[in-house]
Amino acid sequence: MPAPAPESHTVRVSLVILAVIAAGAALYWLRGILTPLALAVFLAVMIDGFARVLRSRLPVISEKAALALAIVLSVVLFGVSGLVIADNASTFVGQLVAYTPRLNNLIAQVAGLFGVEVPPTVSDLFAQLNVSAYLGDFAKGLQGFASDAFFILIYLGFIIASRSGFQRKVVGLFPHQAERKEALAAFRRIRDGVERYLWVQTVTGLMIAVASWIAMVAIGLDNAVFWAFLIFIASYIPVIGGAVGILAPPIFALIQFETFWPAVILLGVLQAIQFVVGNIILPRMQGDSLNMDPVVVLLSLAFWGMIWGMTGMFLSTPLTVMAMVILAQFDGSRWLAVLLSADGQPEKLRDHAAGSPDEPPKPAPRSSPSRKREPKD
């Protein structure tokens, strides 16, 4: 019987492309189920990294105590963040009502630039809009957010509770030690890449938020704490977050102040802050840790934003790092990982995660078929 013909490279590439399209369609159709799960996994990775940092700084505490302390501190931080947003958001809405005359004047100036003789007022604009429909959509959005938050917490609890069985599952899935080492190395690459991204974005986001807060306080902008907090949260979204941090406070400054100069000065200062942190500090901190092409960052932002909305934008970079690591494990899909990487070497993230920047971990030899051995834990 003649041997089957070897599978051609074109067939393999075509199968990979079809698989990516099918996976994208499945992610879009199941977004209602998968987005809370993805956020829960994201939070679990963050809490696990936080626990390991606490364990390294406080060697006297046990692993379970460090995990419990990380969960408590994370809940406290998220609770404080929610209170800050709720308190400042109500003050912000009240000030917008007080600035209605100034806003009418600003609309008249802008309309005059375009030759509009009778400019509309804020009341006219609200009258033309279907406010009840927008309020209904907003209420549905809040209801959906509350429902998603509930499911995220449930998923997070189960993920944390199932951590103890992860090693046994790996042993069951990969009985040979060499395969197990390779799977664990891939998991560490994903985990370390996400944690490194979180650390860099958090530190640089704090730098931008604090510097922006000082600039806003210096010119007397109202709700400087609220805007600084918004800039910090937006820093986790590539490209769009920086645009929000640069444009939103100056637009409000146009409403608050009688002249354009405070808004112009604030716009220039915020642009300078974003430029220094984004082009000098961020590359030095990040280095080649993520090893992702900048064009891929933009494309992943658009792709995940189209599939999962704001959640996808927030998780676009970690999800793409995970995809690059997984695709690099197989010969048929490695070319996709090469395209996603910055230098054509998707294994670089693996080498950093393994602890040796030059030499990847060497797998242990397989056991002989004639001598069966029990898998080591």
Rank of each mutant, 00 (worst) to 15 (best):
L282F: 07
N223K: 10
F275H: 06
I280V: 15
N223D: 11
F229E: 04
V296M: 14
M207K: 01
E258T: 15
D288G: 12
I281D: 01
V295Q: 11
L299P: 10
F229N: 01
P249T: 11
I237P: 02
I237V: 15
L266Y: 01
A215W: 00
I251Y: 05
L282D: 03
V264Y: 05
A228I: 05
V225Q: 06
I251W: 06
I233N: 01
V225G: 08
L299N: 05
P238D: 10
I237R: 03
A215K: 04
V225F: 10
M285D: 04
Q256W: 08
G242Y: 08
A243T: 10
G287C: 12
I265F: 11
A234D: 01
S289M: 13
F232A: 07
G220R: 06
L267K: 05
A215R: 03
F275P: 00
Q286M: 15
F229Q: 03
T259L: 10
V225C: 07
T259K: 07
L247K: 03
L299C: 13
G241L: 10
N223Q: 15
I233M: 11
W304V: 14
M207Q: 02
F303I: 10
V269L: 13
A243I: 13
W261Y: 12
A248Y: 06
A272D: 03
Q271W: 07
F232N: 00
G278V: 12
I246K: 01
I255P: 00
P294A: 12
Q286S: 13
G245N: 05
D222G: 14
G305R: 02
L299K: 11
G287M: 12
R284D: 05
L230D: 01
I219G: 08
T259I: 02
V276Q: 06
V269A: 13
F275K: 06
L206V: 11
A211F: 09
A224M: 10
G245E: 06
V225L: 15
I273H: 00
S212A: 15
P283I: 05
V210Y: 00
F303G: 11
F252H: 13
F303D: 04
Q286A: 15
G242H: 10
P250L: 09
M285Y: 06
L270Q: 07
I265P: 02
G305N: 02
F260C: 01
W261V: 09
F257W: 02
G245S: 07
I281L: 12
W213F: 08
A215V: 11
I251F: 14
G241A: 11
F226K: 01
I251L: 15
S300T: 14
N291S: 09
N223I: 11
N279D: 07
V297P: 01
A209P: 00
D222W: 09
L270R: 03
F275L: 14
V239E: 09
A228H: 01
